[in-house]
Nucleic acid binder design. Structure first.
Lengths: 101, 101
DNA sequence: CATATAGGTAAGTCATGGCTTACGAAATAA
DNA sequence: TTATTTCGTAAGCCATGACTTACCTATATG
């Protein structure tokens, strides 16, 4: 449920770049912004979207906010495509049987 | 490779509705448009995007075009999230070890 | 042939959203 | 306290893209 938000969250290229940068491990906002061709506020906005989508979580550390991947939210997407792939195969099988003489 | 196109393809709600409707099996354009709150040309446009993204394939049958799910393209997304989930877990482990006393 | 069916394409409209700059707030440092 | 760092938020700009209607092509059918 609520895949909508997750798909939309991963659609924007720079936002997905932020997301994938977190594979290296938890990171603060300035570190995430480094190397990306947009302003830091833009990164903050992307992080809010990713967080609302349940793909990322936030932790405070002094004046910094440390963002990390949300394994729970990511596993939901994994499960979604697992099921989708199974169903696609079944549908394919049925369409073959239907065209049998 | 080329996840970008797939994510963007699945981001639009009605386009994902078309995509998910194909779980039932191969279907012609008019059948896909039925029940959806947009015009038939809009469905055609969505199908083009899904096809270019490798999520859907097309077959001609007389005057009809039969669209089906592309298991190959879908499996690429499944693999993407499989790997992502693994890496997210590893990153989580590393962050735990790093915070060990 | 003429007509109906099925669906792709063009062009234009309009809202969404990704970006910017400017600003504000909270925690540390001097 | 004052300054500095780190970051979120507000407001506005502008391109993108999700729609629409109008039109065209191609196959079947009378």
């Amino acid at each position: 449920m609520a895949y909508e938000i997750k798909f939309e969250a991963l659609a924007a290229p720079t936002r997905r770049a932020v997301f994938e940068k977190l594979r290296a491990g938890p990171m603060a906002v300035n570190a995430l912004a480094e190397g990306l061709p947009v302003s830091r506020p833009a990164i903050s906005q992307h992080l809010k979207v990713l967080k609302d989508a349940g793909l990322v979580s936030e932790r405070r550390d002094g004046v910094k906010r440390i963002y990390s991947l949300d394994t729970q939210g990511i596993s939901e997407l994994r499960d979604y495509f697992d099921r989708f792939w199974d169903e696609a195969l079944e549908a394919y099988q049925r369409s073959l049987e239907a065209s049998d003489a």
